[in-house]
Design a protein around this nucleic acid. Structure first.
Lengths: 107, 107
DNA sequence: ATGATATATCCGCTTATCCGAATACATAAG
DNA sequence: CTTATGTATTCGGATAAGCGGATATATCAT
């Protein structure tokens, strides 16, 4: 893949990177990956206020990372981009490796 | 890979996600991937003030995403984690796909 | 239409992040 | 030791992000 133009990097940040730049949104992504859920159930499961959960879901939805599907009065949310979970998993491995190195250097 | 604990998600955000949460840092990562550089040259190439460049490099270095190597009075920076570039490339593809879908929906 | 449930949005506030300019620090040369 | 060059840090201020509580909107059942 070629080197991206500045404009594309702005879009990349605005659409994806910023979305995973909040720990609660990461938490939500993993929770929905485990199993889809509506807003209320998700909020309870993660011990987050409902408005907070709703706001984060809106951000993830705008960027296509999650998908909303209405079902009567409730709305079912699920992961819309499996690749984002794979990316987060790679990041976790990177972090493990880095923290491992750090400990060795400290000793 | 299993579902991460809350504590690990905090670390994930703090160590990796937050680091790529700034467009200038993404720009720096791609620039260094193209070819390693010292701070001054990088700042000029990206039209960023030197202190700004240095601050961003410090953040990326603390998290192992770039590596610093002193060479006389100047310090050579290069990518320390090739995987972060692969991740950014996948995100770019995700973005293309999503924007493509958006256009179709708009029509 | 009314009430009940689920979701989204608005408000003021706090906190975090980024910035440029100035300055301090580090290294090497004369 | 002084100078020159390259890098890092400090400072105050501006901007953006996230929050909880209250409220508005939407859908369905009675």
């Amino acid at each position: 893949m070629s080197v991206p133009q500045l404009e594309e990097l702005q879009l990349l940040h605005q659409n994806i990177c910023q979305a995973v730049g909040d720990p609660k949104r990461i938490q939500i992504l993993y929770a929905l990956h485990e199993h889809p859920s509506n807003v209320t159930a998700l909020a309870q499961a993660l011990s987050m206020p409902q408005p907070t959960t709703s706001r984060h879901l809106a951000i993830l939805r705008e960027r296509g990372l999650v998908i909303a599907e209405r079902n009567g009065t409730s709305i079912m949310y699920r992961i819309g981009e499996t690749r984002i979970i794979e990316i987060l998993d790679v990041m976790r491995e990177m972090m493990r490796d880095w923290i491992g190195k750090q400990v060795i250097i400290m000793e």
